[in-house]
Write a protein that binds this DNA or RNA. Structure first.
Length: 463
DNA sequence: ATGTTC
């Protein structure tokens, strides 16, 4: 009995040494008997776990088997599943490549790419992905529940200086920022029992309470502008109205949930192709999958509560109630039925657009945004773009866009800006009208919002 | 998008 005999049995690596050691302990047997016994151990290792000479080998064989099975479950398809792309001429190759990787995941069943698509972590921004009994934390993104809200207000001739004052007084921007002391608002979402149902959420409740009603940073904004309805809709007559539009998310709370569960998912898929590492998923039926789903849906409600507080503060300061309100989440996963099967639809920077469903697609700080109604297109998994989409990265924008050009762009459109930075310059975004035109089969336009006074976080480069 | 990681 030697190493070659063992290798002929199909064993590799450290298993060879373990088999030789076991064979040594059974040296009373003939070579034939020994080979038969080893073959039996290899075929049925679970039967040898309590037989001392073979125990170590049997354990290692079982471990190798389960690792191989795990690798098999993580193996990417050779080719991506087919998916539709809206406005392909508007989409950079990197976003296509990311979507192709997503469509090779063994859990993927369908997908689509929206015309505002650009590169993100894991799934591209503007990516829609349906999976079977799995949820991908980075298929939702860092800012879980990131969303839009529009309030149409019964006010006329609101002075620009008053808009400016209201935004200064009733919104808060910046990383880590919260309302202080007696200014801190309250909201039912903070009493949601889900906060007590996991250690992570219990820990995050304090941060959520501290930051509620704030706007954060990046592309988030609160703005006053005019909302134009060409036809009666939303319970309103056709006409031009004063409106408030906000883009906000789940702040630090959602970011920490996303970070935590992405790490859990990555640990659970050590064999996943490095290309798809950021697309690691959680089985929906597992404890981790259930915990993520619960935390994600809570973060979604929390994000909408942030908008509600922002809009309520402004309406209260004006002494009015909104005439109409529209809102939608564009970073979230939903359970849905696809071809008679239960699936999870991830929208990472995509507006839900079921037939008749209202949504908001903003342009940029100085370009119009649109209230839209979904057309229920199945090929887009009932989705549309979530905005114009970035045409250049933040660093690129800082290098390439002269401040004077941005100031001129704002001035030409009559937009007053509080905060903001070159990285959020309108020229760093795709043309919203091209993006809207590219999805005429996904949504119909209900009304147009034109920004007048915009507040954002201070960018890395002041303008 | 968040803010130095329960």
């Amino acid at each position: 009995m030697n190493g070659k005999d063992i290798i002929r049995l199909g064993l590799k690596g450290h298993l060879i040494g373990l088999a030789l050691k076991a064979a040594d302990a059974r040296k009373g047997l003939s070579k034939r008997e020994l080979l038969d016994e080893l073959s039996s151990v290899i075929a049925h290792p679970q039967d040898y776990l309590d037989q001392p000479p073979y125990r170590g080998l049997a354990e290692e064989l079982l471990k190798a088997e389960s690792q191989q099975a795990a690798a098999e479950r993580s193996r990417l398809r050779e080719l991506p599943l087919a998916y539709d792309v809206w406005g392909p001429e508007l989409i950079e190759d990197g976003a296509r490549r990311q979507m192709n990787v997503a469509m090779r995941l063994p859990v993927s069943v369908a997908g689509a790419l929206m015309p505002d698509a650009h590169v993100g972590y894991g799934l591209p921004i503007g990516g829609v992905l349906a999976t079977r009994s799995a949820v991908i934390p980075y298929g939702v993104g860092v800012d879980i529940g990131c969303s839009m809200m529009l309030s149409v207000l019964p006010v006329e001739n609101l002075e620009r200086s008053e808009m400016l004052r209201l935004l200064q007084r009733h919104t808060r921007f910046g990383a880590g920022v919260g309302w202080e002391g007696r200014e801190r608002p309250d909201h039912d979402v903070l009493d949601d029992p889900a906060w007590r149902e996991s250690k992570l959420l219990g820990y995050l409740h304090g941060k959520a309470a501290q930051q509620i009603g704030t706007s954060g940073s990046g592309n988030h904004f609160v703005e006053f502008g005019t909302f134009r309805l060409d036809e009666p809709d939303l319970g309103l007559e056709a006409g031009e109205y004063v409106a408030v539009l906000s883009h906000s998310g789940s702040r630090g709370t959602g970011a920490q949930i996303a970070g935590h569960f992405t790490r859990v998912a990555e640990r659970l898929h050590p064999h996943l192709d490095p290309e798809a590492r950021k697309l690691a998923w959680l089985d929906l039926d597992s404890d981790d999958g259930q915990a993520y789903w619960q935390a994600m849906t809570l973060a979604g409600r929390y994000a909408l509560a942030n908008h509600e507080i922002i809009h309520a503060r402004i309406a209260k300061a004006l002494g009015v109630r909104a005439l109409a309100q529209v809102s939608n989440s564009h970073n979230l996963a939903w359970k849905a039925e696809l071809n008679g099967e239960q699936v999870v639809v991830h929208r990472k920077g995509a507006t839900p657009a079921a037939a008749g469903q209202l949504g908001i697609i903003p342009g940029s700080m100085a370009d119009p945004g649109y209230v839209v109604r979904g057309l229920g297109e199945p090929r887009s998994l009932e989705s549309a773009s979530h905005g114009a989409g970035r045409a250049m990265g933040r660093k690129d924008a800082e290098r390439r866009i002269p401040k004077a050009d941005m100031r001129a762009y704002l001035e030409a459109r009559g937009v007053t800006l509080i905060g903001g930075g070159i990285d959020e310059a309108p020229m760093a975004y795709k043309r919203i009208d091209d993006v809207i035109a590219a999805q005429g089969d996904l949504v119909s336009v209900v009304g147009q919002f034109k920004p007048q006074v915009v507040r954002m976080d201070t960018g890395s480069e002041d303008i």
